[in-house]
């Protein structure tokens, strides 16, 4: 199982918000936001909820599970 996300899409829909601005809003570094977007870092529940609250969405609207077996088949 992997964690996918629509972060980039929501950032662009949010006045083309920069990674740094989002990082500032949720209290992490720009590299962390970059790694989450690239699917290389799985955020904690707290951070995922902070991001969701920032965009005024639910966590499930931003993050979703990727079933690797279904991708292979």
């Amino acid at each position: 199982m992997k964690l996918g996300n629509h972060l980039r899409k929501f950032r662009f829909e949010h006045n083309e918000l920069s990674q740094q601005a989002l990082a500032n809003a949720v209290g992490v570094t720009r590299l962390t936001i970059h790694s989450i977007e690239a699917g290389k870092f799985c955020p904690s529940t707290l951070l995922a909820m902070k991001i969701a609250r920032f965009f005024n969405k639910t966590v499930e609207e931003i993050f979703y599970l990727i079933d690797e077996e279904s991708i292979r088949s």
């Binding site: 209290g27 992490v28 570094t29 720009r30």
Partner: peptide
């Protein structure tokens, strides 16, 4: 200048 709250440059 873009305000940085959590900086990773020094890290």
């Amino acid at each position: 200048e873009e305000i940085v709250v959590k900086d990773d440059v020094l890290f």
